[in-house]
Amino acid sequence: MALIKHLPQDSALQRELHGEAAGWSVTDHLLAATVDHLAVSNWMFMCVNSGEDGDQPDPPKPVPRPGLRDGDEEEGTDAHENGGSAGGEESATVSPQALARFFG
């Protein structure tokens, strides 16, 4: 059991249990979040400096994360725009899924 518990993240067992998410390390998630934040920053810069009010560029698409469907990413965007939660109120606990949506 000790051998199985300490297998590397990219082992065949981890891939079987967790799918594509097993190949993503914390560094990979942080890099994807960095890319997303830079894309949003560039998009906001273009919106502010475009000069034309009616012709705004489309917002950038986030880097796909393992384990998230397209609808999950959209929910995260809506929750972020509403002040942190989908209903508008703040929750005391933050789930790993909420963190993943916030950072990407």
Rank of each mutant, 00 (worst) to 15 (best):
L30T: 04
N42G: 10
E73C: 00
D55Y: 11
A2L: 13
G76V: 01
P64Y: 06
A22N: 07
M46S: 15
D53K: 12
E16T: 12
H18R: 14
T34M: 03
L30N: 07
F102T: 08
D78L: 15
P66C: 07
N42S: 12
G71C: 07
E20L: 09
A100H: 03
G88E: 07
A32K: 01
G104R: 01
R69T: 10
I4G: 04
D55G: 00
L38P: 02
G23M: 05
P59S: 06
P59N: 05
A2P: 04
E75P: 00
A100S: 13
A79I: 04
P60F: 05
D28V: 02
L3M: 11
N82Q: 13
D53G: 06
P64I: 05
P8A: 09
R101P: 02
T77P: 00
P59Y: 04
M46L: 14
V35E: 09
S50R: 15
L68M: 09
G88S: 03
R15D: 00
V48R: 15
H18Y: 14
T34W: 04
S11A: 10
L68N: 02
D36I: 02
V48Q: 14
A39C: 09
E52R: 15
S85K: 06
A39G: 09
R15Y: 02
Q56R: 15
M1Q: 11
L3K: 14
N49H: 13
T34L: 01
A86M: 14
L99H: 07
L7T: 05
G87Y: 10
D28S: 00
A32H: 03
N49P: 00
G51N: 08
F45S: 13
H80Q: 15
P57Q: 04
H18D: 01
G19T: 02
R69L: 10
Q97P: 01
W43C: 04
V26C: 01
G71E: 14
T93A: 14
G51M: 05
Q97V: 10
E52C: 13
A39Y: 02
D53Q: 12
P57I: 02
N82R: 15
E89N: 12
L3F: 12
D72G: 04
L17Q: 10
P8V: 04
T34N: 06
R69Q: 11
L68A: 03
D70E: 13
L7H: 04
P64C: 05
A92I: 10
D70I: 11
N42K: 12
E20I: 05
E81Q: 13
S11F: 04
T34V: 00
S95W: 08
E73V: 04
A22F: 02
S11G: 06
D70Y: 06
L38N: 11
P64F: 02
L38A: 13
L99Q: 08
G83M: 08
E16I: 03
H37M: 14
Q97H: 12
P66L: 03
K5T: 08
H6K: 09
E75Q: 11
S85A: 15
S25E: 06
L99T: 07
S91W: 10
L13D: 07
E52W: 10
A21S: 15
W24D: 01
Q14R: 15
D72I: 02
A12H: 07
V40A: 14
G83S: 07
